[in-house]
């Protein structure tokens, strides 16, 4: 059994609830004990960091301080929470003035942070700690014949470098292949979906989403898989908006990585929140359920 502190992130409780639902049963099958960080707060995500740097760092630091007390790596399934928490941790290490101020502020909440937490993305943990080989060995329902386009988005692989290539990453492809599925090769797998700008600059985001869906479809994808809640919502919940704006007729299910792994591990569709996907994946997944 491997132990981790778990940071679900705000969207896993709401607009990305299929993610929040599918992580625990998959972790259990893979012998990971994800212990939810008690009373975690919003990571201090990029909108916050564009309004007030010190406050945003304090938001992140409260979570880091809570995790440090417990001592395990802090794992999140959300790409945006990942770079926010990890970025705050490195800024606290690099900038002593910022660290002093943040620790003074944390003291007002009876907390302190000494830089002892390693922040990790769940996809990276699945890839590096659990490994595709071990996942492959646990597959009870091979996804043979299913053409899957892995969509990395941005913040899983950028700006952090190390675990995967920031321009042409492969980790998700290897995870998908370990499930027996056919990995679709497509050019835009790590290009931007517009992120939260879908709320303020919808036309721009819909253009980016359209490009991604077109590229995946042209390369034969039957579905997409992504670890990131923002990417999943943009590609899934806004797909019908893209269809009406660009007169397209995409019907491409977008699964969370843990949903796809869960199907291959034989976990029940309900437990994986499959009926919560806006573009229903039931038809393409029918042979495997």
């Amino acid at each position: 059994m491997r132990y981790y502190s778990y940071f679900p992130g705000c969207s896993a409780e709401a607009t990305a609830s299929p993610l929040g639902l599918s992580v625990p049963p998959v972790a259990k099958e893979l012998d990971m004990d994800l212990i939810e960080l008690e009373d975690w707060n919003c990571c201090g995500s990029s909108p916050y960091g564009s309004v007030d740097k010190l406050e945003a760092t304090c938001m992140a630091a409260r979570n880091l301080a809570l995790a440090e007390k417990r001592g395990f790596d802090l794992v999140t399934p959300c790409s945006s929470c990942y770079i926010t928490l990890d970025g705050a941790d490195s800024h606290l290490k690099e900038y002593p003035a910022l660290r002093d101020q943040v620790n003074q502020a944390l003291a007002a909440g009876n907390l302190d942070y000494h830089g002892g937490v390693r922040v990790r993305h769940l996809a990276e943990v699945l890839y590096s700690d659990v490994t595709p080989d071990v996942i492959g060995a646990k597959v009870s329902k091979s996804l043979k014949g299913l053409k899957v386009a892995s969509y990395y988005g941005c913040q899983l692989v950028r700006p952090a470098v190390g675990f995967d290539d920031p321009e042409s990453p492969r980790s998700l492809d290897e995870l998908v292949a370990s499930l027996g599925a056919d990995v679709v090769s497509w050019q835009l797998k790590a290009r931007c979906c517009g992120g939260s700008l879908v709320m303020s600059e919808q036309d721009l985001a819909l253009e980016l989403i359209n490009k991604l869906l077109r590229n995946a479809q042209e390369n034969g994808a039957q579905c997409l898989v992504t670890p990131c809640p923002l990417c999943q919502i943009n590609l899934d919940a806004y797909q019908s908006q893209v269809n009406s704006k660009f007169k397209t007729n995409y019907n491409l299910p977008v699964l969370f990585l843990t949903q796809l792994i869960g199907v291959a591990l034989g976990i029940k569709p309900n437990a994986l929140g499959l009926q919560r996907n806006i573009v229903s994946p039931m038809k393409v997944l029918a042979p495997y359920l």
Binding site: C10, E13, A14, D39, W40, N41, D52, K53, L54, E55, T57, C58, M59, R62, Y95, A97, L98, Q101, V102, Q104, A105, L106, A107, A108, G109, N110, L111
Partner: peptide, 24 residues
């Protein structure tokens, strides 16, 4: 909305940050 229990502590932390105000 989902709310955390430690809203009071979080507010104290953020108020203190605002008072320090430097790293903007």
């Amino acid at each position: 909305p989902s709310r955390i229990k430690g809203r009071g502590e979080l507010k104290a932390i953020l108020d203190k940050a605002r008072a320090l105000g430097g790293a903007k």
